[in-house]
């Protein structure tokens, strides 16, 4: 299944400068494996010891995958996958 993945500035050296790339897969893990096959090095930045890196947030259609099964989160056809660094956000 084809999805669109937004790449944060800090990782664009791995995607030849592209802000967003196409990928396929029905779970986040499959999407990341597919990304890795074309943009080597990305997976190591996103996944550590079999789960998402602590300071990386991944959203499928704006919902954080950590509450949708993590790497096993379902990704539907046409979904927007957004990768972002974790930041302190909100009204402080």
């Amino acid at each position: 299944m084809a999805v669109t993945v937004s790449i944060p500035t800090i990782l664009r050296n791995l995607t030849g400068g592209q802000k967003s790339v196409e990928a396929s897969g029905s779970t986040l893990a499959e999407v990341i494996d597919d990304l890795e096959s074309r943009h080597a090095g990305l997976k190591a930045k996103l996944v550590k010891d079999g789960s998402l890196h602590r300071f990386v947030n991944v959203y499928v259609n704006d919902e954080d995958v950590r509450f949708q099964g993590g790497l096993e989160a379902k990704v539907s056809e046409g979904a927007d996958v957004t990768i972002l660094p974790a930041v302190a956000g909100g009204m402080r």
Partner: peptide, 11 residues
């Protein structure tokens, strides 16, 4: 987000 490094995130 531009300069944010993935290894220096903040939780």
């Amino acid at each position: 987000y531009g300069l944010r490094n993935l290894d220096e995130g903040f939780v």
